[in-house]
Design a protein around this nucleic acid. Structure first.
Lengths: 205, 205
DNA sequence: ACCTGAACACCGTTCAAGT
DNA sequence: ACCTGAACACCGTTCAAGT
């Protein structure tokens, strides 16, 4: 019996998640609301809340899924490339994902937990897995052995690309420039990598 | 008579703006609300609305003021420096401003106009003035003459720094790294600039 | 003319009442 | 046991009614 109930609840949660995904893809995060969602999955608001806890938790699960999709896309895009191509390819795939999933990606950053609430472990791990992809490439590319420095470069570069997508996503990039995200990313990454190699060469002397 | 009324309305608007600023500095954007604000400036909600139009407009004016403060701070910090010091100084002053005005700075990006509404001219100009500071420095530093390319580098770098502050401001930087904003900025900017100079040298051959 | 605040149209979330 | 939806505590914004 308990098993049956569990299954029903899981199925309802899944329906809630998928419907949320659709609603956000169409109208963004601010188009989401509990009453509409309950109606769409054919249950009462009360039942919805017993299943999802609250809207924040639901959105967190949606975001985790978006991060999973991003990870699959990115790690897939690296298959069978030799290592010089990997970095630009990673970034290009990332930007393409952002463009194709604009509203979902915006939700990743528009949504904030109440002040002080930390992101749950299982959520943080999904982000770490992503930055791991970049660390690996940078370690290969630069030949640097210091994991702390690699992590800092990877974070800095990740932030850099994030800035481009964040401003684009909020419609504020157009004030700075007419350039596309891809152009800006190239303008940032190419000098950055060239500088890194130069620094490595100096160090070897 | 008309003059007198104008003055009263302007004074009330100013009080609304200052009080908003205080409320946001203490409780962030989501701590703001029309009823509390009206009470704090001793008028009814109705009167508040005749003066501010709506909350979006009020926040836009607050943000414009924050951008003005940032511009003063940054251009002041460049006075009397020789040109190699300027870039790192600009970025350091920027990061310090963000830290000292965390909630105001967050409001700059947390606040979004309703979908499709463009930012007003007078607001966009304040952003352009800021990017202008960076363009000037990059033009000096690289010696590059092409204004389009300078604008792209400036935008890319601005986005890069923005990414660091945006993730820090939303509490998500700590997932990537324990490094401080300053460290990350240095890790991004130093290779970037080194790469730019290397590219300029190659071009001259 | 101008100010007021009750009223409207929404929210997220809960819990007494029903089955 | 479980589901329901009215009810609570909020929002932003407006406008009939008062001065």
């Amino acid at each position: 019996m308990a098993r049956r109930r569990e299954h029903d609840r899981d199925a309802l949660f899944e329906r809630a998640l998928i419907t949320t995904r659709h609603q956000i893809m169409e109208n963004g995060l601010e188009g989401l609301n509990a009453r509409k969602l309950a109606k769409a999955i054919h249950c009462s608001v009360g039942t919805l809340y017993t299943v999802i806890g609250n809207l924040d938790a639901l959105i967190l699960h949606l975001n985790a899924r978006t991060l999973d999709d991003l990870y699959s896309t990115l790690s897939g895009s690296l298959q069978g490339l030799d290592h010089q191509e990997k970095l630009l390819n990673l970034i290009q795939s990332y930007l393409q994902f952002v463009k194709e999933n604009e509203k979902l990606w915006n939700t990743l950053f528009e949504h904030r937990l109440p002040e002080g609430e930390p992101l749950p472990e299982w959520y943080q791990q999904r982000i770490e897995r992503l930055i791991g992809l970049l660390e690996e490439i940078l370690a290969q590319e630069t030949g640097d052995q210091d994991p702390k420095r690699i992590r800092e470069w990877a974070s800095a570069l990740w932030c850099g690309i994030h800035g481009i997508t964040a401003l684009a996503g909020s419609g504020k990039l157009g004030i700075l420039t007419n350039a596309e995200m891809d152009t800006l990313a190239e303008r940032l990454v190419t000098p950055f990598m060239k500088g890194l190699s130069a620094m490595e060469m100096e160090e070897k002397e």
